[in-house]
């Protein structure tokens, strides 16, 4: 037990470069596997949370652009959504990585300012970028669908109150669209967290053996020649993450619907496949 506490101290933050430097090489214990794989989960959460946050704003902008009448905004939004929803995330990782490494190494000169480019090929930046763009495309399609399904009556009522433009969007359109989109968006969030496991199986290199949970699971499965321990541990962690996500999104859902009769009912989580 004490030994396990020591292992936790050594490896709990290994994935962000703190603690013991050398990964265990022999005599693997269950405790080491659980600790290191859990440590890798930090990266999954990092990618998932940040991509979801940034992607949310981008997705809203894209959805509005796609439903709008201006073709200069609508066409690019449609194409963006088509490309990112129509191709595998795995390929997007490869392509973006290859594109990013083609940037000039010395940095780009813009108006005398040199912008450094070397950091974008690191997983924490490059992979995050891909995940943001990817989830933005999927979420934009969800929000676009919600905007199209807004009840006509609500919009007419808003017009009758003399609302227009920004205030109509902020007070009527957007809240209602979110309400409609929320179950599907919950689903998308879960998929996104699952997709973060692809980062270290795509081109992005693991820096100083700092990887995500699947990276460490793979490390152990390869070293112990036994897939029956490491992979179920990752699976367990992800079930926990999924349950937490459903709970958190349920809170938002209650808040979105709090004015409706019977709003206290919890989010009917229907596993619709929206991807």
């Amino acid at each position: 037990m004490n030994q396990c506490l020591q292992t936790i101290q050594d490896y709990a933050l290994r994935s962000i470069g703190l603690g013991e430097w050398m990964l265990p090489r022999s005599d693997f214990t269950l405790c080491q596997q659980i600790t290191l794989i859990g440590s890798g989960l930090i990266w999954n959460l990092y990618f998932g949370v940040l991509a979801l946050f940034c992607g949310f704003f981008l997705a809203n902008a894209l959805a509005v652009a796609k439903i709008g009448r201006n073709p200069w905004l609508r066409k690019p939004a449609e194409w963006f959504i088509f490309v990112f929803r129509g191709s595998p995330l795995f390929i997007q990782f490869f392509l973006v990585y290859e594109a990013l490494v083609m940037l000039p190494r010395a940095g780009i000169d813009i108006l005398g300012l040199t912008i450094q480019t070397s950091w974008v090929t690191k997983a924490w930046a490059g992979a995050l970028l891909v995940l943001v763009l990817n989830t933005a495309a999927y979420s934009a399609e969800i929000f676009y669908g919600a905007l199209r399904n807004l009840p006509k009556g609500e919009l007419e009522a808003a017009d009758a109150y003399g609302m227009s433009g920004w205030s109509r969007y902020r007070r009527i359109v957007w809240p209602h669209a979110m309400r409609l989109a929320w179950p599907a968006y919950t689903n998308e969030a879960i998929f996104l967290f699952h997709a973060t496991t692809l980062v270290y199986f795509s081109s992005f290199p693991a820096f100083r053996q700092q990887g995500d949970s699947l990276y460490y699971a793979n490390y152990f499965a390869d070293k112990t020649f036994n897939p029956f321990v490491a992979y179920p541990i990752v699976a367990g962690y992800f079930i926990l993450v999924t349950l937490c996500l459903i709970a958190i999104f349920g809170i938002f859902n209650r808040r979105l619907n709090r004015h409706l009769p019977g709003a206290a009912t919890r989010l009917r989580y229907r596993p619709n496949l929206v991807r």
Binding site: I190, H194, A195, T197, L198, Y231, A235, F238, L243, P271
Partner: peptide, 16 residues
């Protein structure tokens, strides 16, 4: 499949 990323199945099932 709702709780566990598909890639974990893909890594695990064939070996198992």
């Amino acid at each position: 499949v709702r709780g566990v990323p598909d890639i974990i199945f893909f890594l695990f099932v064939p070996i198992a």
